[in-house]
């Protein structure tokens, strides 16, 4: 049994409807890098791949990148919080091997 951890990122359109623009996925906590489902070339997605995100949760120096796995995933909800872009908390589901 394998656990899939994921965070969904939604964008708000002018009619106040949300559209999912990316899913950040991690197979098994503590190992591997986060993968992205969605258009990786969108500026907002491209930017966090290159620039990383701040460690809001523990305020550790430096930035977090996809290869930081769960730490990166856990901080997405703080990075995308204003409503125009909104990330979910980390969700998990069981996937078949």
């Amino acid at each position: 049994m394998t656990l899939l951890y994921f965070v969904e990122l939604f964008e708000l359109d002018s009619n106040a409807n949300q559209k999912k623009i990316a899913t950040f996925k991690l197979l098994d906590e503590g190992s591997g890098a986060v993968e992205i489902d969605g258009n990786r070339e969108r500026p907002i997605i491209e930017n966090i791949q290159g620039e990383g995100i701040f460690d809001y949760k523990y305020a550790r120096p430096g930035k977090l990148y996809l290869y930081d796995g769960m730490n990166f995933l856990e901080n997405l909800k703080y990075h995308f919080r204003p409503g125009y872009l909104l990330a979910t908390d980390v969700k998990k589901q069981v996937v078949d091997n």
């Binding site: 708000l12 909800k77 995308f80």
Partner: peptide, 22 residues
């Protein structure tokens, strides 16, 4: 008032006649 999907409980608000807000 529509609750948006996401960790933070942001709501999309429609104000009668005059507009929209978060």
């Amino acid at each position: 008032a529509k609750i948006l999907e996401g960790y933070f409980p942001v709501k999309a608000i429609k104000i009668k006649d005059d507009g929209r807000a978060l």
